[in-house]
């Protein structure tokens, strides 16, 4: 029996320089307005399209600490709100990440929120409306959110169709924005901003990923993301031959099927 590992998020100091982010639409303005108006925000979009980066960037820009929790299907309310630890003969209370964020007025980012267990939703609800409070049941404590607290959740609509969906009663508490794969020009800019790769190779990588997004007939689970080509560009920048970099960063991470992989490699060879 493996013990459930306790989540260990800490309150990292606010970075002086916000991490680099290239807006694809008006998501930065929306984020900032939501923050000022104290309304929670729901970010939708495929994996690797920059949801987490946007949150990091905005938290730093707004000068708030950031608490991130990656939710999975065993994430429970207890994990988020806090627990008693046994130390020697005594028990000691330890705040969970949500409690910590609420107390300190941080931006709380719940990644893949739909994956979490339904009892988490109950804990989150009073935080999302005018009450802005968190009730910690086990500790019997009502905590009012400090000014500057903001809740951001992300969710990937295409993932596991029909199984994990947010309840309408939860969704309607959030402002929502969809992030999608950027246009080739913007993607090139992102790629160069992230890795400083030269324009020729950057263009090739963007052309490649653009083609790969037409993969639908192959039935891959997920669309190739900007993250994939960012990794490939890093490898190329580090001196790896381009085809080898694409193989490791793109082809192998997209599929385990030998035939599909071979076909994808042929496509890479037509690009590099």
């Amino acid at each position: 029996m493996t013990p459930a590992s306790p989540p260990t998020p800490g309150l990292a100091p606010v970075p002086k320089e916000p991490p680099w982010y290239r807006p694809v639409g008006n998501e930065c303005e929306l984020f900032e307005t939501a923050f000022r108006q104290q309304v929670p925000l729901l970010l939708k979009g495929p994996t690797g399209c920059g949801k987490s980066r946007l949150v990091e960037h905005m938290a730093a820009r707004l000068g708030r600490p950031l608490v991130t929790v990656a939710c999975h299907d065993e994430t429970s309310a207890v994990d988020l709100s806090g627990r008693y630890l046994v130390e020697g003969g005594d028990t000691v209370w330890q705040d969970g990440p949500v409690t910590r964020a609420v107390r300190s007025g941080a931006i709380l980012y719940l990644d893949e929120f739909a994956e979490a267990r339904s009892d988490v939703v109950v804990v989150i609800h009073p935080l999302t409306d005018h009450r802005r409070t968190l009730y910690v049941e086990r500790h019997d404590e009502q905590i009012e959110a400090a000014p500057g607290f903001m809740l951001v959740v992300s969710y990937n609509p295409g993932y596991q169709r029909g199984l994990k969906e947010l309840k309408p009663s939860t969704r309607q508490r959030f402002l929502a924005a969809t992030l999608s794969h950027p246009d080739p020009d913007v993607e090139l800019e992102i790629l160069q901003g992230e890795t400083g790769i030269d324009t020729a190779n950057g263009k090739k990588l963007c052309a490649l990923v653009h083609k790969l997004r037409e993969l639908e007939p192959l039935g891959l689970a997920e669309m190739p993301s900007t993250r994939l080509i960012v990794n490939a560009a890093r490898l190329i920048q580090a001196g790896l031959p381009a085809r080898m970099a694409c193989d490791a960063a793109i082809v192998e991470s997209l599929t385990d099927d030998a035939e599909i992989a071979s076909g994808l490699r042929d496509l890479v060879a037509l690009v590099f």
Binding site: E214, L215, L218, E259, L264, R265, D266, L267
Partner: peptide
């Protein structure tokens, strides 16, 4: 055939 049909589908964007 296997690898080529993957390539062909990618470029024609249909099965």
């Amino acid at each position: 055939k296997g690898a080529l049909s993957v390539l062909a589908q990618l470029l024609s964007a249909e099965p």
